[in-house]
Structures are given as structure tokens and as C-alpha cells.
């Protein structure tokens, strides 16, 4: 095999060398294309940053592409005060964090019964969670809205926490169940021989091993809940309970929403997710790919 291949390798290298000129030009061409595309993808962000700190008068005279001549922060201040940003920020943080922790815990418990406990009918249970994950929120919205009103949780962050803990854990259960399904049985049997009950096994054996997966799930749940729009829009009707994306959308069509205010608002609304993304970037890209192969 190797013997027959060797000559071909040699010719291949030779043609490579002859190609080099042609390849050099092509290389820059492709790189330029990829960079131009990246610039186009970034353009809305650049426009946003450039016009967040630009005087409205300069905007109307110089247009969106002119660099701001002075640092205009009135837009930011206006947005910050109009929506009472710290309150919105705190609402987003605590609801997303609660969902991240609660949703992951709930997923772990259910997936433990399915993947490790191998309860009967587990295929069906997984199917139900998969279907629950597919449902459009519209089909749950109005009943949830009336139910929340009945128990006095409408217009409360807790309604968001409860609803999204369950919705996110439908995905988490599906993913974790398949991860735990491949858990080394030898470890479980060893623990059982030592007399550990299922609760001890869960926290002492299973939890430490799947912790990386759990942390990816937590990051996902946090970001997903943070970015949620539809259910919070309907549930959170007064300003003091609203989350960041809803606050920005509620200003739409408002007179005071001039160009710098809008852009400054969008900018501060995405800064938290951006920071979060930069901190967890590595875990996250690993998680995106892990989810894909499953």
C-alpha cells in the first residue's frame, strides 16, 4: 500500500509547488472575502456604538457614518433614567440566575431517574419532554396568563422563574438523560456495593462527573432566559417587574426615543450578555458542539 502510494505523493508535492503563485492570489482573495463578510456582520454593532454617543444635531447634519465629534452621554442618561435601568437589570439577573440553577437541578433529577434509574417507560418520558420542548409558547401563553392571575403571580418575576425553569428543563432533561444513559455502570455498581443509596450516588458519584455538562446547561439556561421575550412581554405588565429586553422594546414608538437614546439603550442592554459570553466563551462553544453531536 505505502509502496504504491509513495510516487503519487511525490507528484502531488510537485504540482503544489507549481500552484503556489496562483494559490497566493486566491488565498488573499478568500481572506478578503471572509473579512468583508465579518465587517458586514459587525456593521450594525458599529453603527450602534457610533451613534450611541453622538449629538442628535450632529446625527441629522453628519449622518450615521460620521465619527462623533464629542462624547454625548445624554442619550445614555435619558435611557437609564427613563426605564430605571438598575431595576430592569436586577430583574433580568435574578430571574435568569434562578432559572439557571432551578432548571439544571430539575433536569438532573429527572434525567437521573431516566438515564441511571432506567425506569420503565423511559422512552415515552423522554418523548414527552422532547415534545414539550417543541411546543410554541403561544399554545401555553393564555392559560399560563390566567393561571398566574388566579394565584397572584401575574406581573411577578416568579412567574417567569417557574415557567422557564420547566421549559428549559424540558431541553435539559432530554440532553442529560442521553448523557447519563452512557454513564459507566461499574461506578454505580461499586457505589451500590458500598451500601450507598440512590441519593448518595446522585450527589457523590454522578454529580461530580457530569458537572461540566451541568455548567454548560446553566450558562445556556441563563442566556436563554435573559433573552426571552414573548412570555415576559405578556406576564410582566408594569415597569418595576420588567426585564431588560422588554424595557427596551417598551420604549419603541416613544417620542423621547431619539437616535442616541435608542442606540445607547441597545448598547447597555447587550453589554451584560456580552460580558457573560466573554467570560464563558470557551465552555459555551464546547457546549454548542456537544449539543450538536448528541
Amino acid at each position: 500500500m505505502t509502496a504504491t502510494l509513495t510516487p503519487t505523493v511525490a507528484t502531488a508535492t510537485v504540482t503544489h509547488k507549481n500552484d503556489r503563485h496562483h494559490r497566493g492570489a486566491l488565498r488573499w482573495f478568500i481572506l478578503a472575502g471572509a473579512v468583508i463578510f465579518a465587517v458586514l456582520m459587525l456593521a450594525p454593532f458599529v453603527l450602534m456604538v457610533m451613534n450611541a454617543f453622538k449629538d442628535p444635531a450632529q446625527y441629522s447634519s453628519g449622518g450615521p457614518l460620521a465619527l462623533p465629534t464629542s462624547l454625548y452621554t445624554d442619550g445614555l442618561v435619558k435611557f437609564w433614567n427613563a426605564v430605571d435601568f438598575p431595576v430592569k437589570l436586577w430583574n433580568s439577573i435574578w430571574t435568569s440566575a434562578a432559572v439557571a440553577v432551578g432548571g439544571t437541578a430539575l433536569s438532573l433529577l429527572t434525567a437521573y431517574a431516566i438515564g441511571i434509574g432506567r425506569v420503565r417507560g423511559r422512552m415515552w418520558i423522554v418523548m414527552i419532554f422532547l415534545l414539550a420542548n417543541m411546543l410554541p409558547q403561544e399554545v401555553l401563553l393564555y392559560p399560563l396568563y390566567t393561571m398566574a392571575q388566579k394565584v397572584g403571580l401575574n406581573n411577578s418575576g416568579w412567574s417567569i422563574v417557574i415557567i422557564f425553569t420547566v421549559i428549559q428543563s424540558a431541553f435539559g432533561t432530554y440532553l442529560l438523560a442521553s448523557v447519563l444513559g452512557t454513564f459507566p455502570r461499574a461506578l454505580l455498581e461499586a457505589a451500590a456495593l458500598d451500601g450507598a443509596n440512590s441519593w448518595t450516588v446522585l450527589w457523590r458519584v454522578v454529580f461530580p462527573i457530569v458537572r461540566p455538562t451541568l455548567s454548560v446547561l446553566m450558562i445556556f439556561f441563563f442566556i436563554w432566559t435573559w433573552n426571552e421575550f414573548f412570555i415576559p412581554l405578556v406576564m410582566l405588565t408594569t415597569p418595576e417587574s420588567q426585564t431588560v429586553p422588554i424595557a427596551l422594546a417598551s420604549l419603541q414608538g416613544d417620542r423621547m426615543l431619539d437616535v442616541p437614546t435608542l442606540n445607547a439603550g441597545a448598547l447597555v442592554s447587550l453589554v451584560p450578555t456580552l460580558i457573560f459570553f466573554l467570560i464563558f466563551q470557551r465552555t459555551l462553544t464546547r457546549g454548542v458542539t456537544a449539543g450538536a453531536v448528541k
Partner: peptide, 11 residues
């Protein structure tokens, strides 16, 4: 990574 609502408002 940015909230869809924020992206929509900028656009």
C-alpha cells in the same frame, strides 16, 4: 448572543 429584541430594535 444578543437578545433578539435588542437586535430587532437596532435594525
Amino acid at each position: 448572543i444578543l437578545p433578539v429584541a435588542v437586535a430587532g430594535i437596532v435594525w
